[in-house]
Simulated assay, not measured.
Amino acid sequence: MLKFIKNHMESITGIEIYPLISLLIFFTFFVILFWWVFTAKKEYIQKVSNLPLEDNIKSL
């Protein structure tokens, strides 16, 4: 089964670009995420981190 898939994938022209595109999307996402974490306002981080500890949460 694996040999069939490998042979089939090798027959597709231009398929070698897809792993590179996936890596680029993955890397870009985490760079943006790290940038957001380091530039987020401290007040917002504090407010969001205290949400699970608040007593006045409305019940569903």
Rank of each mutant, 00 (worst) to 15 (best):
M1F: 11
M1W: 14
L2K: 10
K3R: 12
K3D: 07
K3S: 05
K3M: 10
F4P: 00
I5H: 08
I5E: 08
N7G: 07
N7A: 13
N7Y: 01
N7V: 03
N7S: 11
H8G: 01
H8F: 03
M9I: 13
M9F: 06
M9R: 10
E10K: 11
E10P: 02
E10C: 06
S11M: 14
S11N: 11
S11D: 12
S11E: 09
I12A: 01
I12P: 00
I12K: 06
I12G: 02
T13A: 12
T13R: 06
T13Y: 10
T13I: 03
T13F: 05
G14N: 03
G14T: 00
G14P: 00
E16A: 04
E16F: 01
E16W: 02
I17E: 10
I17V: 15
I17R: 08
I17W: 05
I17M: 11
I17C: 12
Y18G: 04
Y18A: 12
Y18F: 15
P19K: 09
P19H: 07
P19R: 11
L20E: 15
L20N: 15
I21E: 11
S22T: 13
S22C: 13
L23I: 15
L23G: 12
L23W: 12
L23K: 08
L23F: 11
L23C: 13
L23M: 15
L24I: 07
I25M: 08
F26E: 02
F26P: 00
F27W: 04
F27S: 01
T28Q: 02
F30N: 02
F30E: 07
F30H: 10
F30Y: 08
F30S: 08
V31D: 03
V31P: 01
V31Y: 03
I32V: 15
I32P: 00
I32D: 02
L33W: 08
L33I: 13
F34M: 14
W35M: 11
W35V: 09
W36E: 07
W36C: 09
W36N: 08
V37Y: 14
V37W: 06
V37D: 04
F38S: 08
F38Y: 13
T39K: 00
T39G: 00
T39C: 01
A40P: 02
K41Q: 10
K41G: 05
K41H: 11
K42V: 06
K42W: 02
K42D: 05
K42Q: 12
E43F: 02
E43A: 01
Y44H: 13
Y44N: 12
I45T: 05
Q46F: 04
Q46I: 09
Q46P: 03
V48T: 08
V48I: 15
V48A: 07
V48C: 01
S49F: 13
N50G: 07
N50E: 15
N50F: 06
N50R: 15
N50S: 15
L51Y: 04
L51K: 07
L51P: 01
L51T: 05
P52L: 01
P52Q: 03
L53E: 10
L53T: 01
E54A: 05
E54R: 03
E54F: 10
D55R: 04
D55S: 10
N56R: 09
N56A: 07
I57A: 06
K58V: 13
L60V: 08
L60W: 14
L60M: 15
